[in-house]
Amino acid sequence: MCQVCGCETTTSVLVDGVPLNPGGPASPYRPVQGQSLLHFGMGPAHAHAPGLSQEKMIRIERDILDKNNTYARSNREWLAQRQIFCVNLMSSPGSGKTTLLVNTLQRIQSRVPVAVVEGDQQTSQDAERIRATGVPAVQINTGKGCHLDAHMVGQSLQQLQLQPASLLFIENVGNLVCPAGFDLGEARKVVILSVTEGEDKPLKYPDMFHAADLMLLNKVDLLPYVSFDVARCMEMARRVNPALPILPVSATRGDGLQDWIDWLLAGVQGLRQGAPVESSGVPAA
């Protein structure tokens, strides 16, 4: 297991270099106090041993990710009220997420107001690449964490001056495992797989491909040089997620980017017309 997986306190989580919520709760995973969620029942009690006589069975019945999901619901409501179409981009490191995003922004920013939340373990290099296109971006550094959570994203929403009826990208930490389980409040989850990674990734990392609403198959310009069976990859992805739409793209050469941009604009338009904002992907729990 990853022994550093999200286990640190928020002090090492930085938003544009500033500690996340300094002085606030020690961990983003702290569940809310919810008396109405507790069901109490008396267990076997040792009635005659004073001081040790009160062993109680306390029924809790609470989802372990409940706190994150509470933050995610609040993000989703906040975004929906402003008709902001939020897309959570997830992939392994090196799949070309940032390059794809930069080239997408250059093509789409004249069509719709857009902003970016960048997640990386360290550095703000990606946010700087985004800002170079003229699009506002905020960088979240997760420190030791391997995924963004809804609390981090909620804080970053307050830092960006987001326009109503706009498009918001969240570029998650490069990781095909943990980000699948953490709902951020996005409208859609998009997974990016590149042809240099191997066609069996959907079966090796099924939670991610199961949670996704769209898969982009990136770097198709490299297909002549690598051993990658596109049809087999798509077939494997649809074993895990039978209804998954898949768009082959090349971020550098531009193949398929128009289809991707049409998909994004349709999402923005759908939200303006009151389409549901719940991501159809089911988080891992």
Partner: peptide, 28 residues
Amino acid sequence: MHEMALAESILEVVEQAARAQQCTRVTA
């Protein structure tokens, strides 16, 4: 995935439930 983060969430849920009942020790 993220088992350490989940373990922290579990502890938080357990602590809150125990304190709400004025309990000082959790045995199971």
